[in-house]
Write a protein that binds this DNA or RNA. Structure first.
Lengths: 199, 199
DNA sequence: TGAAAACGGACTTGACTGGTCCGTTTTACC
DNA sequence: GGTAAAACGGACCAGTCAAGTCCGTTTTCA
C-alpha cells in the first residue's frame, strides 16, 4: 500500500487521518473482492464508514486506490507461483498452485476482473510475470510427464480460469465449493495422455 | 416471435411496418449474440436501420423484445437436448449436445448472459426445461457407465458453462476455438472413473 | 390524390458516478 | 480550557448514458 502513501512526506498526519486511510484501504480490499473492479468510490467510503470527502482528501483517485490494491494482490499470486516452482515435485507444485489460483479467483471478483482484463489499470507488469510463471509450471510438469503433452501452456490458464463457475447457470446456484468440484474434473483431464478416443 | 406480434390483431399493417418489425427482430438476434443482453434499444434500432421512434411504435419495450428473442433461442437449445436424448448411444448423445451447447454459449454473449442468470427476463420456464434435460442426459450416461459416477448431474452444467473462456486471461487472448480445446480436456475428465489418486 | 399510417430523431427524464467545496467537528499543542 | 490548524461529512456539480416520448415529415395504399 506504500504505493499510495508515499506522497505523505511531511510530519506525520493526525490520528484520525491515519485511521481513515487504513479504513479506506481495508474497505477497498473487501469491496473489490465482493463487488469487483467496478466498485464506486462512494461505496468504498460507505463501507469504510467515512464521507466521500475524506476519500478524496486522503487518496488521489478511485483508480489509484484500486490499482494499488490489485497490484498488491497480483504480486501475492506471483509469489505463490514462485513457491510452487520451488516444489521438487512438478505435478504437486502445479496442482497446489492451481488450487490457490482458482481459489483466489473464485473468491474475489476483483482479482477475477483484473486477470480477465476487465480493468483499465496499470497491472501489466504483474500480468507478464504471471504469464511467465504459468509457462514454467506447465512446461516443467509436461517434461516430467505429469501433464499431457498435446496441449500448449496457454491452454492451462484458460482452463483454470474456466473452472471458476458463474454463480448461476441455467438457474442453478453455485455453492462456494463448486470450483473445487470443477477443478477436480479438469485436473483429471489434464492429468494423462489423451483419452482412448471413444467416439 | 409470435409472442411479440400477437397484439397486432386488426387488419394487417402497412408493408413498411411489417418490414421494420422483421428488421428489428433480426437485428435484435444478431445484436444479442454479439453484444449480450445489455444491448441498448438505440443500438438495435441503429443496426436495423430504423429510427428509435419506430422501435417503440412497433415493440412494447426493449425488455419485451429481448425476452422474446432469448426465449426463442433457449427453446431451440431444449430441442437440441431432446434430440440428444433420442440418440441410442448415451455417451454420444451427451457429447454431441455438450458440443452444441458450449458452442452456442461461446458464440452468443446473449445466450451466455441468459443462461448465467444475468438477465431479469421471463425465461424461467425454458430454464426449467433445460435443467430437466441436463439431468436426464447426465444420469442416462452415468447409468451406461459413460460418465464417472462420483459427480451429481448439477456438476455438469457448471462444468460446461465453465468451458467457455473469457476472451482474455492474464493478458492472453482466447482464439475462437479455445472452447473446443477446453471442452476436450473436460470431456476427458468426465469420461472415466476418478483418476488413480496420485497426490 | 389525400388521409391515415408510419417514420426519424431530437428531446426529456432519470439514474448513476467521479470528484469538488464549504460549513462544522476533531485534534493536539499550549 | 482555549484555539488554530487539520480533518471531516455530505450536499452538490458535471458528465454520461440509456429508456422512452413527441411531433413535424414522409410513405403507403384505397
Amino acid at each position: 500500500m506504500e504505493r499510495l502513501l508515499a506522497a505523505e512526506l511531511g510530519q506525520r498526519p493526525r490520528a484520525d487521518a491515519q485511521r481513515n486511510v487504513r479504513r479506506l484501504v481495508d474497505a477497498a480490499r473487501k469491496a473489490v473482492a465482493e463487488v469487483g473492479v467496478d466498485v464506486t468510490a462512494h461505496e468504498i467510503a460507505r463501507r469504510a464508514g467515512v464521507g466521500i470527502g475524506t476519500f478524496y482528501r486522503r487518496l488521489p483517485s478511485r483508480e489509484a486506490l484500486l490499482g494499488a490494491v490489485l497490484a498488491d494482490t497480483l504480486d501475492e499470486i506471483v509469489a505463490l507461483a514462485d513457491r510452487a516452482l520451488r516444489n521438487p515435485d512438478p505435478w504437486r507444485g502445479f496442482r497446489d498452485f492451481a488450487e490457490d489460483y482458482v481459489g483466489l479467483r473464485a473468491t474475489s471478483c476483483g482479482i477475477n476482473d483484473a486477470l480477465g482484463g476487465q480493468c483499465p489499470l496499470e497491472i501489466d507488469s504483474s500480468l507478464t510475470a504471471l504469464r511467465d510463471r504459468f509457462r514454467q509450471l506447465v512446461e516443467r510438469a509436461q517434461e516430467a510427464g505429469a501433464i499431457r503433452s498435446d496441449l500448449v501452456w496457454q491452454d492451462v490458464p484458460f482452463l483454470l480460469s474456466s473452472v471458476i463457475p458463474a454463480d448461476r447457470t441455467i438457474g442453478l446456484r453455485a455453492g462456494p465449493e463448486q470450483w473445487r468440484r470443477n477443478l477436480r474434473i479438469v485436473l483429471d483431464g489434464l492429468d494423462r495422455e489423451p483419452a482412448r478416443s471413444r467416439d
